[in-house]
Amino acid sequence: MSAPPRPRLEGHPPTPGPSIAGPARAASGGGAAKVVGRKAVPVAVRPDQQTGDGRYPIAWLTISAPRGATPSATSVCECGRNLFAAGHRKALALIADHTDHKTRCPLRTDQEGAAAV
């Protein structure tokens, strides 16, 4: 036996009558009621992280040192640098090299000393 065909959802007017959904209490039993259904629920929006001063990150250093496992580090820069090191000594050396790369990176060169045109 086959099921009856489902009606198309496009173009159907909203179903008249009261809404089935109603206010629900928070799981803890206290606090304000949450409105469920057709009403919008306000959401906390974080402010934009961009400060608008023109700065943005171009280099990232990721360090992973789980307890009892081999530490590792990754150094990535928009200039094309993408290095990985595993092991305690090699990770420490890469961290030092990443710090030094900040002064040598062609994308971070200081333009204040350039001659004015």
Rank of each mutant, 00 (worst) to 15 (best):
V41Q: 05
R55V: 08
F84V: 15
G68L: 08
G17K: 02
E10Y: 12
T70E: 13
G113Q: 13
G80P: 09
D110F: 09
P57K: 12
V117T: 14
D97R: 00
Q111Y: 07
P4H: 04
P71K: 01
V76H: 15
R67K: 14
S2P: 12
G113C: 09
V45D: 04
S19Y: 02
A86C: 05
E112Y: 14
A24F: 02
D48T: 04
D97I: 00
S72H: 01
R89Y: 03
A69P: 04
R6V: 04
R8M: 08
F84D: 08
R6D: 04
W60H: 12
R55A: 08
P14A: 09
D53G: 00
T109D: 13
Q50F: 07
T70S: 09
P106D: 11
P47W: 09
E10L: 14
Q111E: 13
P16I: 02
V45E: 06
K102N: 12
I20P: 10
P13D: 11
P42R: 08
D100P: 00
K39H: 07
G37P: 07
P14L: 04
R104M: 07
G54D: 09
L61P: 11
G54C: 09
R25M: 08
A40D: 02
A91R: 01
A85P: 15
I58Q: 13
P13F: 07
K39I: 02
L83F: 11
S72A: 07
V76I: 13
E78T: 11
C105V: 12
T15I: 14
G11A: 10
L94F: 03
G29A: 03
Y56C: 09
L9N: 11
P66M: 05
R6E: 04
I95G: 01
G54T: 03
E112A: 14
P42M: 05
R104Q: 10
R38H: 04
L107M: 13
A91S: 08
Q111A: 14
L92H: 03
V45G: 03
H12L: 14
G52T: 01
P66Q: 06
P66K: 03
R25Y: 04
L92W: 04
P7S: 11
P16T: 02
T99W: 01
M1W: 14
V117A: 10
L92Y: 03
R6C: 03
C105I: 12
T103W: 05
D110I: 06
G68K: 06
A3Q: 03
I63G: 06
I20R: 06
E78I: 10
V35W: 15
P57S: 13
P57T: 08
K39W: 09
A44C: 02
C79F: 10
A32V: 03
V45C: 04
G54H: 11
A114H: 11
T15Q: 07
A32I: 03
T109A: 15
H12S: 14
D48F: 10
A44R: 02
P4W: 07
G29D: 03
V117R: 09
V35C: 06
K102H: 15
A114W: 13
P42H: 06
V36S: 00
T74C: 02
V43Y: 10
L83R: 11
L107G: 10
A69Q: 15
C77W: 14
V76P: 05
A27K: 00
E10A: 14
K102S: 12
T70P: 01
P18N: 09
I58C: 13
R25C: 05
A73D: 05
A114I: 10
S75A: 15
A116E: 15
T74V: 10
E112L: 15
